[in-house]
Design a protein around this nucleic acid. Structure first.
Lengths: 402, 402
DNA sequence: CCCCATTTGTTGTACCCTATTACAAATAAG
DNA sequence: CTTATTTGTAATAGGGTACAACAAATGGGG
């Protein structure tokens, strides 16, 4: 949910034209390690002089660098290589999960420069103590007065396990934290100073954002991200943009009804996908204590690694149910790629075969789309990198604004 | 699937800037009966002189008219009203369905000026005889040499019951017509002359397009359209744009798995939504001959109208299954509106109460979203109006191109 | 009836930004 | 050493909107 201009103008004029071109070139620099001006000419359709001027401005503002020209063996004047300047700016990102909180400093290349985590017991906790935790983690990372070391923090992004308003300011509801209508951005702003903008995002949405920009989904225009711990949710990328729906509730994949004879879900319905593939379903299926959280899941994975037959059977059955919901998503979206995050990322090695073979049988035209479901590549950092992207978004939209 | 430029440039320059502004104003004219220049200034952020010049150009090209200024009682110079010129241009649109073919002449306001239909018995038919039918219908409508009467036909759009390549040129597969990889646009072009561009679209996708631009979904940024006859499919509008997925397969709502203990579907899976809510499921549930097509559905509706208890019971059960799949779509997309088209439009009066009350219980946060599911407003014309939009799309993208 | 305020339309010039053209620089090929 | 090729830079041209001023057309108020 990038911030919206105070006046949603649709008309283009000279100054917005240049801003748009700066943003486009900046975005192109972020999808490649380095780029020549000629490649930018090719990609944008602008002339060499226009691209030169635009690159010059990004360099002047400390967003890009142009290295010395590199000889590549063909004749003609060598090209200078432009790339993102990963040194001067960073975002501070946080994650408020069910099992703990985390923080990271992330640069413009999506690289985690430093991070910190703290476990917390599950259960209802007010927002303020969680924000206290965030302050503590930020201090651990060396944050002070809008800076970390000699990097300027351009914004703060927070991933939370709940639904968020589309302006990224309030948590509408987070059932597993037992929050309802929490002005989280204001709470964080109050502690970090009004000079740094704070943006909140749903944890699955920002996981999708990260895997799309820097992870397994890179280069895809249409991507589905499935994440899950206690709850199962997801993010949707369509034509390169995230979909959040009219109230921020899009991506509630855990509540797809897949089994009319199934169990009662926490949402009150019967047979939601979450009741078959969530954390509690897995632990129950494997004969573990369903209330022991992530620690129990780690023990289950350890048992699987050691070849425990009951656990492997449970995982196979789990994979079968995963395939049912994934078939639904594939038939509805026809995505280029489906990225499995959260707990599913951890399970992937044990369920991939079952999921893949079941999908080949159950997805419409699925036989023609091998490899469409993959594990995420950013692991535990995905949500932190995604939250940083929320913080960077105003800069991405208008690279040379104040 | 609007046509793509031969060179996908992302850079903006003066000439593309003006084209973009012309397109934006043209689009605004199409969403309102008439608009003042001041309203366009407000909406676009451009100045009065820029808007005046842009409107002047649309008028010069015969795309808009500016009526005499209207007195509205407040002081100040009265405003001229600009509106779409619905007189000089039109699109020729066709629909190739399972039970027949149809054609229409549609103007820039989305108004059907004239239409013609022909029923056909079901079953496999080669594409060529279908195109013969289209030529016959076009002749009936008075089409000759790129004109109908004194209206110039700017393009031809064809809705077909199957999946279509994203460039709108080929039918990848249409199971109920038993087509596979048919170059339909070329076949139509060959009969109507190379001077008129032909664009093909999936029938549910174009139904969604029509209801979004001119029907029940007007004004929504995020809309789901559910259509169905033998097969059940749908269209997805996200941030105002249609979603077709990587291969044009998006919107296969009929193949969402909702019942692991259900029937074998035509696609080979078990318990797809289509097996519970498609035409055959309804006819079987009501004790009718499942192979008698649309005529049987009409007889069923007549029986319901007369209060046949068995039929009303069947419809209630049908509504329950409709609600299950709709709950899935609502949880996945969080759409502003879901529009029911095709057969579901016909059934709506008999199933609305069951669907609405079941959704209130089964959709995540559904209680807070009354009225999100509605019947379509364009009825049988939806697909024809939507196909016309495919034909108009190049003009919408660049209003003053040749 | 006249003057004033307000809103909209038109016109001429200023300004922003890229396009175009020409030239310079830096290479490899012959 | 010359030529060909590719890229960078600089000066000017050109497209299109912004800006400012003025004109036109209304209603309000005295």
């Amino acid at each position: 949910m990038g911030t919206t201009a105070s006046k949603a103008t649709k008309g283009v004029r000279s100054e917005t034209l240049r801003r748009s071109n700066l943003a486009a070139i900046f975005a192109m620099l972020r999808t490649a390690p380095s780029v020549t001006r000629s490649e930018l000419v090719e990609a944008t359709g602008l002339t060499r002089s226009a691209v030169g001027s635009l690159i010059g401005e990004l360099v002047e503002y400390g967003l890009a660098t142009e290295t010395g020209a590199q000889h590549d063996g063909h004749r003609g004047r060598p090209s200078a290589m432009a790339e993102i300047d990963g040194t001067g700016l960073a975002a501070l990102s946080f994650e408020i999960g069910v099992d703990g909180v985390a923080a990271a400093v992330v640069n413009l290349r999506g690289e985690v420069l430093d991070d910190a985590r703290a476990s917390r017991t599950r259960g209802p906790v007010a927002a303020e103590p969680k924000v206290d935790d965030l302050v503590t983690l930020a201090n651990l990372l060396g944050y002070a007065n809008g800076m970390v070391g000699d990097r300027r923090i351009v914004g703060i992004g927070v991933a939370v396990a709940g639904t968020v308003t589309s302006d990224g300011q309030r948590v509408v509801m987070a059932p597993n934290l037992q929050w309802s209508d929490v002005p989280l951005a204001d709470l964080v702003s109050a502690r970090f100073g009004a000079g740094v903008a704070v943006t909140i995002g749903n944890d699955a949405d920002v996981g999708a954002l990260a895997e799309h920009r820097f992870g397994a989904g890179g280069g895809a225009n249409n991507m589905i991200f499935v994440g899950g711990e206690i709850g199962v949710g997801g993010g949707i990328i369509v034509e390169g943009h995230r979909v959040h729906g009219r109230s921020g509730f899009a991506g509630e994949f855990g509540h797809m009804p897949v089994n009319p004879s199934g169990d009662v879900c926490g949402c009150g319905s019967i047979g939601c996908w979450e009741t078959e593939v969530g954390e509690r379903a897995l632990l129950r299926r494997a004969g573990f204590d369903v209330d022991s959280g992530d620690a129990a899941v780690q023990r289950l994975l350890l048992a699987a690694q050691h070849g425990d037959a009951a656990v492997l059977d449970a995982l196979a059955e789990h994979g079968g149910w995963m395939a049912i919901g994934l078939a639904c998503l594939i038939n509805v979206f026809d995505p280029e790629i489906v990225v499995m995050g959260g707990m599913f990322n951890d399970l992937w090695r044990y369920v991939e075969d079952v999921v893949t073979s079941d999908l080949a049988r159950t997805s419409f035209g699925g036989q023609e789309r091998p490899g469409v479901v993959v594990a995420g590549r950013l692991g535990n950092s995905a949500r932190l990198i995604g939250a940083a992207e929320l913080a960077f978004q105003p800069l991405l939209n208008d690279p040379v604004s104040a």
